[in-house]
Lab assay of single mutants.
Amino acid sequence: QNEKLANELKSLLDELNVNELATGSLNTYYKRTIKISGQKAMYALKSKDFKKMSEAKYQLQKIYNEIDEA
């Protein structure tokens, strides 16, 4: 289960640069939040902690959705 979550989180991290570029014309909230979420996700992957990875995955998905809707 950890392996599956780690792969999903890696996949979301692969999209980080594209989504970060998409924040160029948006409010600074999005820029700041996506950077923080990305850092948390990288830390969670290194720690291999299921709870941290779950939270990081949720945060990344949430900010990606917010950027898409903005």
Rank of each mutant, 00 (worst) to 15 (best):
L21W: 09
Y29D: 03
T23Q: 06
T28L: 11
V18E: 10
Y30T: 03
K62A: 06
K40F: 15
N27W: 05
M42N: 05
S11A: 14
T28D: 14
T28E: 15
F50L: 06
L5H: 01
K52A: 11
L9N: 00
E3I: 09
E8P: 00
E8L: 05
K46W: 10
M53S: 01
I34G: 01
T28H: 12
L5W: 02
E66F: 07
A6S: 06
G24L: 14
A41L: 02
E66G: 03
L5N: 00
Y29Q: 03
N17H: 14
D49M: 03
G38E: 06
A6R: 08
M53T: 00
N19A: 10
L26E: 04
A22R: 15
T28V: 12
Y29M: 04
L9D: 00
D49T: 02
F50S: 06
A41D: 01
I67R: 02
S54K: 12
N2Y: 14
A56E: 01
L5F: 02
Q1V: 12
E8K: 04
Y43D: 15
L13P: 00
D14I: 06
A6E: 10
E20T: 15
I67V: 04
K4D: 09
M53V: 01
L5Q: 02
G38P: 00
K35D: 04
A56N: 00
Y58Q: 10
K10Y: 05
D49I: 04
L26F: 04
N19G: 05
T23Y: 06
L21M: 09
N27C: 14
K31N: 05
G38F: 14
I67G: 02
K52G: 04
Y29A: 04
Q39M: 13
S47R: 04
S54P: 03
K51P: 03
Q39N: 06
D68Y: 15
E20R: 10
E3P: 03
R32D: 07
A56T: 02
E8N: 02
A44H: 01
D68G: 12
E55L: 09
T33A: 15
E8M: 05
N27V: 05
L45S: 01
A44Y: 03
Y30V: 03
K4G: 06
N19I: 15
M42T: 05
K10S: 06
E66M: 12
L26C: 08
A44R: 00
K31A: 09
N7T: 11
Q1P: 11
L16F: 11
I36H: 06
T28S: 14
S54H: 07
Q39T: 09
Q59L: 14
Y64W: 06
T23C: 09
E8R: 03
A70W: 10
D68K: 15
Y43F: 11
A70K: 07
K46C: 10
Q59S: 07
T33V: 12
L13A: 00
K35G: 04
K46E: 12
L16A: 02
F50H: 07
D14P: 00
N17V: 13
Y64I: 13
D68S: 15
K57W: 07
Y43P: 01
S37L: 15
K40T: 05
E55D: 08
N19Y: 15
M53G: 00
K4A: 10
V18Q: 12
Y30F: 11
V18Y: 13
A41Y: 02
L45K: 01
T33R: 14
N17E: 13
Q39S: 06
K52M: 13
L5S: 01
R32M: 12
T33F: 12
L12C: 04
R32I: 14
L9Y: 01
L16H: 02
I34N: 00
I63G: 01
E3G: 05
G24E: 15
N65M: 13
K48N: 12
N7L: 11
K4V: 09
M53I: 04
I67H: 02
N65E: 09
K57T: 04
S11V: 10
I63N: 01
I63S: 01
I63W: 02
Y58L: 11
L45A: 02
M42R: 13
E66P: 01
L12K: 00
E55C: 09
Y30E: 02
N2C: 14
A6G: 03
S37R: 09
D14M: 12
Y43K: 12
E69V: 11
L60W: 01
K35F: 11
T33Y: 12
E15K: 14
I67T: 02
A6K: 05
Q59G: 06
S11I: 11
K52Y: 05
F50V: 07
L5P: 00
E66Q: 09
S25E: 08
L60S: 00
K57S: 04
L12Q: 01
K4N: 08
K46D: 08
E3F: 07
L12V: 02
V18M: 12
A41F: 02
Y29G: 03
G24V: 14
K10F: 04
I36E: 08
L9F: 01
K40E: 06
L13V: 04
Y58I: 12
K40D: 05
L60F: 02
T33L: 15
Y58N: 09
S11E: 11
A56I: 03
L9I: 06
Y58P: 00
T23P: 04
Q61M: 11
L13I: 07
I34C: 04
N65F: 08
K62I: 05
K51F: 09
L5V: 05
I36F: 07
K48F: 08
E20K: 12
L21R: 10
L60D: 00
A6Q: 10
L60Q: 00
K62R: 09
L5D: 00
L9K: 00
T23G: 06
Y43W: 13
Y29L: 04
A70G: 04
L45H: 03
L12W: 02
K31L: 08
K35R: 11
I36L: 10
S25I: 08
K4P: 03
T23L: 09
D14A: 12
K46Y: 08
A22H: 07
E8S: 05
S47P: 00
S54D: 05
Y64V: 06
K31H: 05
N2A: 13
L16M: 06
L5G: 00
